[in-house]
Design a protein around this nucleic acid. Sequence first.
DNA 1: CAGTGAGCGAGCTTCCGCTTGACTT
Length: 802
Amino acid sequence: MPKNLVIVESPAKAKTIEGFLGKDYLVKSSYGHVRDLKKKGLGVDVDNSFKPEYEVSPDKKKLVKELRDHVKKAETVWLATDEDREGEAISWHLEETLNLKNKDTKRIVFHEITKDAIDRAIKNPRKVDYRLVDAQQARRVLDRLVGFELSPILWKKVKPSLSAGRVQSVTVRLIVERERDIQNFKQDVRYRVTGVFSADGKTFKAELSKRFSTLEEAREFTESCADAQFAVSDLEVKPFKKKPAAPFTTSTLQQEASRKLGFSVARTMSVAQKLYEEGKITYMRTDSLNLSDTAVKAAKAVIESQYGAKYSQSRKYTSKSKGAQEAHEAVRPVDMAVSNAGSDTSEERLYDLIWKRTLASQMAEAELERTRIKIVLKNAGGKFEDLHFLAKGEVIKFDGFLKVYLEGTDDEDTDEKAEEGLLPAVKAGDEVERISVRATQRFSNHPPRYSEASLVKRLEELGIGRPSTYAPTISTVQKRGYVVKEDRDGTPRDYKEIVLDKKGIREETKTENTGVERSKLFPTDIGIVVNDFLVEHFERILSYDFTASVEKQFDEIAEGMTEWTRMLKTFYKSFHENVEQTLEHSDRATGERVLGEDPKTGKPVIARIGRYGPMVQIGSAEDEEKPRFAGLRKDQSITSITFEEAMDLFKLPRKVGTYEDGDITAAVGRFGPYLRHKGAFFSIKEADGDDPLTIEEDRAVEVIEAKRKADREKLIRQFDEDPDMQLLNGRWGPYLKAGKKNVRLPKDADVEKLTYEDCVKLAEAAPAPRGRGGKAAPKTAAKKTPAKKTAKKPTKKTGSKK
DNA sequence: CAGTGAGCGAGCTTCCGCTTGACTT
């Protein structure tokens, strides 16, 4: 029996370390926190110095029992959780739940998982740092107080089941405010003039130093170019250097994987997790830029052997990001000599990105030369005499790290970038030949909407959230219905262009597509209403520097300058007062907007948030007659719906026709537009060209028949012995449905040959449906589903797939 | 799971950070 028990946070780490430590050491994992504030109720005794009420998390009960058994058998327990606030707290919670006070217990830390680092740690044990633990308790309790006092206000004043918190509410605020900036954006229209010139046998492009604000000016200038002479007035050649980007942290990994691989933040994390578990990369939830000496050396060796010594330049990077706790290394390959790894394409691509980024960070600067050629009009007349064309060129003299990797950009203004390429060898005074000049109408762009990754970047800049929470936070604000991730098709826009070339001058009108958005974050009506309510009543919590300011106080607690309950007392006094005031004195927040007057009754038509979401109503609750209600469709918003669109909604439900002696009606429900026929529902989709307001009888019958056909094909076989035992065709191939239980078939099963007895056996062997039945089941299931795609609502497909 | 939206009242919802599986119809 090993005499030593080592406890770390992650099982993959445990495995690696056990290899380093030998057979006197048993290494186990705590799987993160084992204890937390109790789930039910506030979990904090506010009147008793904020005493936290802790409980072993339900999913950790079994683990804690196992750990207790191991503790009994061990002589010494080594608490080797991460060296940050949370890690220290995990050690303390272990100390408490495993009764380690009377045991020989040592606290050790290391930032990199190398044999040296671990041996060193074992030689330098310390005690749990209770000041750091107190800082964590303050953080934990503050978050609970904020979350569990703000959320109920929303249930009362806006809609049940909503949530608010220090991190998520500010996240929503960023998205709502960006959307407002976009709404208020004043577009600027200018004429951008580019010329194509020729000299020394090369043609090159140059842009005019001024953009004209009117078509007339642009035309006048272009005309003046027709007979003008062009000459080089100035030539500037400047060397400059480019530095490689630092190794990956969680946040930069998410950004680059989004830019270069098109991965969502959640996808990046789950692919990285697999690489980590396979031992290919270091820990993926980190804010550290640090590389171990071993890694730096290994990178150097790879660079020297593959590219030569002059490409190598070892560097240390230090973090600039707010609140970085640096318990781990940067995200890097475990073994730099392995240039390909991963068990599927996603893993391979992500590994490649991490490998290149890490390698590049240890490579030499790139040396470049920037050339600027100024070209003037020699005889264009006084009016344009101050203007010149500027040609920009960039030449790589020594590629350095660029040989391997260049960081992507979020820049969407590709059109604003001048072509950068090889320029002719000219000198001041040389004449150049004008090939063509074109003045193109350009429109300024509104600020870009956030993508998941650019939002993470912003959150990190503000010091809000942690590497382990970026992905979950983005999923939470979408799950609550505050934010949706969507594509938007662009709309065509005409623009004018004046062209001067060999054939003379002409004016053209062209069309471009504008406003295309791919996987961008948009606020919903609920998101906007909740945000405005919170910003109005809880300015401090919602301010962008709130987290930074409490973090400073947590640091003071960690340094022993402030007592943690004192800090909470000060915070809670004003916060709680604010909560009570708001509960008592604020109005319901509905985002109400009066759209017009119903011509039939003269009553007001109002758009607002109702109990079930955005809706429109005619008349008000105080009227004698009940108001009429209609829910908004998914693509509509209370902030923008017009009177006409609202009135259309009241035309539903609408009778479409009859079929098989039953009425067909069309309407829009909780899950979108649908048809109803003899009690059955048939979803219709706008994507198929179907609209509940206009769909006709023939098409409706088609939809009904298509659904029936799909349902028929769904059933492969049914058994006489038990009609509840069915073999069905599902999204992932055939499966067995035994009563309420869905059973996966063995991979090699021959569906045609399965007997009833086989099926009974399979059904018995399969685990019971999760959630122990009852109404809790679907909820538990929804909760456990990892942030797949942009899981918004439980939108199930009703078998209409082809 | 689908046309709800008053009002009553019970019981429920909710936070952030640390970590992985289990499992999807």
